[in-house]
Amino acid sequence: MVDKRVVREEIMDIKPYIPGKPIDEVKRELGLKEVIKLASNENPLGPSPMAIDKMKEAVAKVNIYPDGNVHNLRQKLSKSLGIEANQLIFGNGSDELLVLLAQSFIKVDDEVVIADITFSEYEFATKIMGGKVVEVPLKDNTHDLEAMLAAITAKTKMVFICNPNNPTGTIVERREVEEFLAKVPEDVIVVFDEAYYEYVDNSDYPQTINYLNEYDNVIILRTFSKIYALGGLRLGYGISNSELIGYIDRVRQPFNINSIAQVAAEASLDDQDHVLKSLEYNRQGKQYLYQEFERLGLDYIPTETNFILIDLGRSNQEVFQQMLKKGIIIRSLASYGYETEARVTIGLPEENKKMIKALEEVLS
Rank of each mutant, 00 (worst) to 15 (best):
K157G: 11
K15A: 06
L221D: 01
N72E: 05
P47R: 03
L77V: 02
R250K: 09
L98D: 12
K155S: 03
A195E: 10
Q87R: 09
F90V: 00
L98E: 13
N282T: 05
Y199S: 06
K56V: 04
A182I: 11
N41K: 11
R283C: 09
S120C: 14
M50V: 03
K15L: 08
S242F: 08
N163C: 01
S225W: 13
K56T: 15
V134N: 02
S240V: 00
I106G: 10
L30N: 03
S48N: 01
Y290H: 05
V2H: 05
R234G: 04
P302C: 00
G93S: 04
D67N: 07
V184E: 15
Q87Y: 11
A229G: 02
I245Q: 13
K277H: 14
R174P: 04
D53C: 14
V275Y: 12
K127D: 01
L363M: 15
R343Y: 09
I239P: 06
R234T: 01
A195Q: 12
Y122P: 00
G31F: 14
L348N: 13
E57F: 15
G285S: 13
S332F: 09
G327M: 08
S315I: 14
S78A: 12
G93Q: 04
Y300G: 01
P206M: 03
Y338D: 10
E135V: 08
D110P: 06
A147R: 15
P16S: 11
K286C: 12
V190K: 02
A182L: 15
N202E: 07
G246K: 02
R252E: 05
A358C: 01
K286S: 07
D116Q: 05
E292H: 04
N306R: 11
P47M: 08
F293T: 11
K183L: 14
T168Q: 02
V159Y: 11
S40Y: 11
L98C: 12
N217W: 14
N282C: 05
V190D: 00
L309T: 12
V275E: 04
S48A: 13
S268F: 00
N166W: 02
D204E: 08
S104R: 02
I220L: 05
I36R: 07
Q272R: 07
I257R: 01
V6T: 08
T305S: 04
Y215R: 15
V200F: 03
D144L: 03
Y338S: 09
